[in-house]
């Protein structure tokens, strides 16, 4: 059984996603829908982090139920974004880059939930399966948001 591995990775990736959403909102405060919706969606990550910490106790994990603050881990993300900023000074292009990045990070979290659900089914762990079934749809909605925003923002940014 490697539930501890999966839970630990999910806890990490949900923290990362929360951070990416917050950075996105900060960077695009002038793009009001991005700003507000990103902050609303951070709430879902925070719920998931809390739930994961609770579930982790059964597997000897001591996961922090409150979201991580800025860590060195996050620096890589910020640097990546800064690279994009350097290459494309226009905000609308930066927005595309940020949504593209968000989509990828959210996809990673989504895959992690898939892994948990698969393992939980194999081991007949109803509690973990229920956790995945409750949280995974919200991750998918976060992904779809990133995808939709890319779709509706990209034309104007790329043809103007």
């Amino acid at each position: 059984m490697k539930f501890d591995l999966v839970l630990r990775e999910l806890h990490r990736s949900e923290n990362e996603l929360a951070h990416v959403l917050l950075r996105l909102s900060e960077r695009h405060k002038a793009d009001h829908e991005t700003y507000h919706v990103a902050r609303d969606l951070v709430g879902w990550c925070h719920d998931h982090i809390r739930e994961l910490a609770r579930a982790g106790k059964d597997y000897g994990l001591d996961l922090d139920p409150s979201p991580a603050s800025d860590t060195t881990l996050m620096r890589a993300v910020r640097e990546k974004a800064a690279e994009w900023l350097g290459r494309a000074p226009e905000l609308s292009l930066l927005l595309l880059a940020d949504f593209r990045h968000l989509y990828l990070v959210a996809s990673g979290v989504s895959l992690d939930w898939e892994l948990l659900a698969q393992a939980a089914q194999g081991a007949r762990r109803k509690d973990l399966l229920a956790l995945a079934q409750r949280c995974h749809p919200e991750t998918l909605r976060q992904m779809r948001w990133a995808n939709a925003r890319l779709k509706d923002s990209s034309t104007q940014a790329l043809v103007s």
Partner: peptide, 8 residues
């Protein structure tokens, strides 16, 4: 649309 995110 998603009523929270607005995604179609």
């Amino acid at each position: 649309r998603d009523l929270v995110t607005g995604a179609p």
